[in-house]
Structures are given as structure tokens and as C-alpha cells.
Design a binder for these strands. Sequence first.
DNA 1: GTCTATAACTCGATAGAC
DNA 2: GTCTATCGAGTTATAGAC
Lengths: 204, 204
Amino acid sequence: MVNKAKDISTEQKILEAARQVFFDKGMDGARMQDIADKAGINKALLHYYFRSKEKLFETIFAESFNNFFPKLSLILESDTDFSVKIEMICTAYIDQIHSMPYLPIFILHEVARQPESFLKKIWSSYPPPVKLFIKVVETAVKKKEIKPVHPLQVIMNIVSLCIFPFAAKPLLQQVTGISKKQFSVLMEERKKLVPQMIIQSIKK
Amino acid sequence: MVNKAKDISTEQKILEAARQVFFDKGMDGARMQDIADKAGINKALLHYYFRSKEKLFETIFAESFNNFFPKLSLILESDTDFSVKIEMICTAYIDQIHSMPYLPIFILHEVARQPESFLKKIWSSYPPPVKLFIKVVETAVKKKEIKPVHPLQVIMNIVSLCIFPFAAKPLLQQVTGISKKQFSVLMEERKKLVPQMIIQSIKK
DNA sequence: GTCTATAACTCGATAGAC
DNA sequence: GTCTATCGAGTTATAGAC
């Protein structure tokens, strides 16, 4: 398979191919041969650009980790009501993951398998803004805008409701037989449903 | 490592070891040598009991698939209020997964990777009671016990809120630094929180 | 930068003794 | 049933020509 756009660099072709194969098979199941085929080059060239499979994986994993936390900081720091922030976060998450539905399983599977030291290194470059998120919830509680709640429960609720359906998509499709299209419709609906649920569960 | 209880059969030792290794590493990352070591036997004996790695995996995957759907049918068929059913399902799910926290990632990762034909075969023996679940929600809607809602959205909400936190546990612990114990406390709380959220979101 | 050829190694599987 | 020893396929990585 040769890339039509001649201006796409070999490195970019490799990264795109690696993304597809790693997302699909995971680190252990991915084959350098498959990545080379998909990029339209041969194995040796992979090693020329990225020294080893591990280095290539690290590159994909790091950028994915970053993508897993959509522009949360910007939203959290914005000067908007708490409920508006919730709505924006849900929409950002659902849109983000909808465009790369294999991301959640990949991240969850690999995070559970990598040594702590490796993870520490990765997100020293891509820090998820959890502290900030917790602070935003705590502030809303103090200002009596919402009920006193454990911030982590709220965060878990939001992320669960937005992301899990994508992680469970293959299972859901197998079990219910719904089409790709029907699934997309459900996910679009959730951009309204999920914030409603969250707000309702913590409003005074 | 030799098993102390002499009455535990070799087959059981293999299955327990295989469960651990497959849950931890996935099919592709698992090594027959690791399973043999953990079971206190050698590789050849694995092949004597289960012809191949694939057969052994199939055994573990099938029983896991079954465990992923806790005794839903019994609860769904029970003669109780809709809201009580929701509560029972959440408790059943959280308790079930709490006792095997690696199950969700394993199932989600592997389901996405197995061919459709294989999955069809598996759950012809372990059918998840989705049809029944949908019917229960639809009945509650018709009886005007709850708002008109898309049953799949309700099901997704329940499963997301109960299961995702376990799938995200390694990530959550890395990112927030909470202990195993603190995590358990949060999950216990959720047995009350989640049903409340679900009921509130669909009550008339 | 890109290719072919191959070295070095890992791992599932089997043969065959006890 | 259980073991040791080994084969052979498949995979990452490198050497070296162009």
C-alpha cells in the first residue's frame, strides 16, 4: 500500500500504521511486519526510524495517554458555571473517543501491564489534570453550588459514563446486534444524557 | 511452588494458574512457561491436560465471560420492584468484580480481538441475558413506573458505573495515588450511590 | 533512506523415558 | 501422569549492498 500524498513523510506513515496495529492488537499482539506492511515499507526501515519495537510502542503509548485526557485543563480553568463545565467535559470526552474508539481498551490494557516507573516517566510529560478536577469539585461544594460529595466519585461517574460504552462497544455489538450507526446515535444522545445525570445527582 | 492441599487436582492447579497469568498478561502476553511455573508443574504437562495454549485460553475465557454477567437472570426474573432490581444488580456487579478486579480489562481486551465466530460459539454456552434486561426496562416504561427511556442507555449506565472504575483502577491509582484500601471504600460506597443515580435519572 | 538476507532468540509443541 | 530434552516456526533486530 503506497501513500498517495507524497508529502507525507515516512515517519508519519510509520506512526499512523503503528497506531492502528498497536490499538488493534496491543503491544504483545502487534507484529513489526504488520506495521511495516501497513506503512508500505519494510521491517528494516522501522528500526532505522525507531530503534526498537519498544521505542515505537512508547511513542504511540505516550501520545495516546495524552489523547485519553481531552483538553480538560482548558475546560476546568475556563470561567464558566460548574454545570456548564460538566457538559463541556462530557462532550469533549465523547467526541474525542468517538474519533478513536479503540483508545480506551488500549490505554486500560496497557496501563495495567506497564511497570510503575515507565508510567511515571510517560505522564511527567503528559500529566492528567486530576488535582485541578478535584479542586473544581471541592470549590463547587464549598460555594454550596452542589451537595457535599466525594470528588473522586463524581470524576469516576463522568469518566465511566462517557468512556465505558466505547470500551464495551465490541461486546455490546456482539450481544445486542446493534449496528455501527445505531451505536453512534446512542453516543450522540449521551452528550445530553450524561451531563443531566451527573448534575441531577449532585445538585442541592 | 507446590500446592499444600494434596487433594487439589493438577487440572485445578493449572486452571488457577492460567487464570492468573491470562488475566494479568492477556492471551498474547501470557507464556505457557509462566503458567507451568505458577502451577508447580512443567510445560509438557500443560499440553497433556489441555492440548494447546489456545484450548487453555478458550477454557479460561469462557468461564470468565460467564463471570462477567453475574447472576443477572435470577435478579431480573425475581418478583421485585424495578428499583429493587436495579439495586440488586449494582450490588451483584460490584461484589462480583471486586473479587476479580482484573476481569473487566481481560474481557474487554479479548472480546475486541477474537473473531466473531469464536465469540458466537462461547456465549452459545454462556448467553448474557440482554434480551431479558431490555424487556424488564420496557415493561417498567409501559407500566409508567419510569420515564420513557432507551433501554440500552439504562443498561449502559448501570454497567458503566459499576464496572468502569475497576477497569480504570490501575490508572486511577497511578494518577491519584490512592491506596488499595481507599479504592475498596469508594467501591463499597458505590453500591448505594450508583442505584440512587440510576433511579433518579429515570423516575417519573 | 531504503532494501534483501540472515543472525539470534523465544516460545509452543512433541518425542520418548520413567 | 509426569518428567527432560529438543525441534521447528515465528519474531525482533542487524549487517551490508545500493
